[in-house]
Amino acid sequence: MFTHIMVGANDPAESIKFYDAALGALGIKGHNMGDRAFYSHNGGNFGVGAPRDGQSATFGNGGTIGFKADTKEQVDAFHAAGCANGGTCDGKPGKRDGAPGDNYGAYLRDPVGNKICAFWTKK
Rank of each mutant, 00 (worst) to 15 (best):
M1V: 07
F2E: 10
F2T: 14
F2W: 13
F2S: 13
F2Y: 15
T3L: 12
I5H: 06
I5R: 04
V7C: 09
V7E: 02
G8H: 01
A9D: 07
A9L: 09
N10Q: 04
N10G: 05
E14H: 07
K17L: 08
Y19E: 05
A22S: 14
A22R: 03
L23P: 09
G24W: 06
A25H: 03
L26W: 14
G27E: 13
I28G: 10
G30W: 02
G30Q: 03
D35M: 03
R36T: 01
A37S: 15
A37T: 08
A37E: 06
Y39T: 08
S40E: 14
S40K: 12
H41Q: 14
N42M: 11
G43C: 12
G44H: 13
G44E: 09
F46A: 09
G47D: 07
V48F: 01
V48H: 01
G49S: 02
G49V: 00
G49E: 00
G49Q: 00
A50W: 01
D53Q: 13
G54L: 14
G54P: 15
Q55F: 09
Q55M: 14
S56G: 06
S56K: 15
A57S: 14
F59C: 13
N61E: 14
G63L: 15
T64A: 11
I65Y: 01
G66T: 10
F67D: 07
K68P: 03
A69M: 02
A69I: 03
T71M: 02
T71G: 03
T71D: 03
Q74I: 04
Q74P: 05
Q74Y: 07
D76V: 08
F78W: 10
F78V: 10
A80R: 14
A81F: 04
C83D: 07
N85H: 15
N85I: 05
N85Y: 10
G86H: 11
G87K: 08
G87I: 10
C89V: 07
C89G: 06
C89W: 02
D90S: 11
G91Q: 04
G91D: 05
G94N: 02
G94W: 00
K95Y: 00
K95I: 00
R96K: 15
D97G: 12
D97R: 04
A99T: 08
G101E: 09
D102Q: 13
D102E: 14
N103C: 07
Y104N: 12
A106R: 02
A106P: 03
Y107H: 15
Y107P: 04
L108P: 11
L108T: 10
L108A: 13
L108E: 12
D110V: 08
V112M: 11
G113Q: 04
N114P: 08
K115W: 01
K115P: 00
I116Q: 05
I116D: 09
C117N: 15
C117L: 11
C117G: 06
A118W: 03
A118E: 06
T121I: 03
K122E: 15
K123I: 02
K123E: 09
